[in-house]
């Protein structure tokens, strides 16, 4: 077998194993919460009989291990269970929310990743001169601003002062693609501001590292333009660390945007999770936890694979 295929298969297997471990952790964590699901459902009005009946009905009397495997079995068949609070199928509910989250994350990434890498390249080209300082200064300023502050400022300027965009980013199926893009313009802008600096700085640092190498000097001596050197010769060798940071930020865009979702009223996963946490809706919390973990692990595997592929020594073994 080709060593690269073997490596990738190894990573995938490890990822699955990790996900399994996470599922144990999630289950054990929610199991350790004071009170059980029956108590959570009945709340203050819980009487002993009602609790007993409900536990019986939900199979809570079985040992935790049995319930864990039932839960895991359900998930493997795509059955995430039903929400306690509104008796809806979790899978269909999450499906729509996850779709929205990925839609927002995709557009935020589509803008921020090329922008960050481009700015990083520029910063290297003009390193320690004013464009470099400007780029670093501005991006560091925007990352230092809490997301909601950036959100409110943009909202005030672009919706109340100048009515360019809508302050509410609620999207739904009957909207056209253009309407959806217009609706998410503001949250995308905020997310771009938040993730830009990290990726830009990493690109800059990684490339600067490579710029010390002898072959860069050779390239300079044979008279290549500085930007060509950076893009053609330095950047490909700096891809591994950059991809890692990009993936971390993508993962953040999927699992960590609760605040932005609340500010712009975006129907994504974060808001959905928070609502159900406050209602002690354990099955939903477990399902969301698992999905978030899967996204994180998946993106990290992807980053690993890309850095393996970017390394010629691994691609062409002796």
């Amino acid at each position: 077998m080709h060593p690269v295929v073997k490596l990738i298969a190894q990573r995938l297997a490890l990822g699955l194993l990790l996900l399994l471990a996470v599922s144990v952790l999630i289950f054990a964590g929610t199991e350790m919460l004071p009170g059980d699901v029956a108590q959570a459902i009945l709340g203050q009005s819980a009487t002993e009989t009602a609790l007993r009946n409900l536990r019986e009905e939900m199979g809570l009397n079985q040992p935790a291990i049995t319930r864990y495997f039932q839960w895991l079995g359900g998930i493997l068949q795509g059955d995430l269970g039903t929400a306690l609070s509104n008796k809806k199928e979790i899978a269909t509910e999450i499906g729509a929310r996850l779709g929205n989250t990925l839609f927002l994350a995709f557009w935020a990434a589509a803008v921020s990743v090329p922008l960050a890498i481009g700015l990083g390249l520029l910063a290297v080209r003009y390193r320690n001169r004013w464009p470099d300082k400007l780029i670093s200064g501005v991006t560091l300023a925007t990352i230092s601003l809490p997301e909601f502050v950036a959100g409110y400022i943009l909202m005030y300027l672009l919706t109340v002062k100048f009515r360019i965009f809508s302050p509410i980013s609620t999207i739904y199926d009957s909207m056209s693609f253009g309407q959806k893009l217009n609706a998410i313009a503001l949250p995308v802008m905020v997310l771009v501001l938040v993730v830009l600096a990290h990726m830009m700085r990493m690109t800059r640092a990684a490339i600067l590292n490579v710029m010390q190498s002898a072959y860069i000097e050779t390239a300079e001596l044979k008279g290549l333009r500085p930007l060509t050197i950076i893009a053609r010769h330095a950047f490909p060798n700096a891809i591994a660390p950059v991809v890692n940071v990009v993936m971390l930020n993508l993962a953040y865009l999927v699992v960590g945007v609760v605040v932005v979702e609340v500010v712009f009223v975006y129907p994504g996963m974060g808001q959905y999770l928070v609502d159900h946490v406050t209602k002690r809706d354990v099955p939903v919390v477990q399902a969301c936890g698992l999905i978030f973990a899967a996204v994180y692990i998946g993106l990290n595997i992807f980053a690993d694979v890309i850095s393996i592929l970017a390394n010629p020594r691994l691609r062409h073994p002796k």
Binding site: M155, T159, V160, P167, V263
Partner: peptide
């Protein structure tokens, strides 16, 4: 804040 902005933006 979003609620107020939504009203102001019509």
């Amino acid at each position: 804040t979003a609620r107020v902005a939504a009203l102001q933006a019509g």
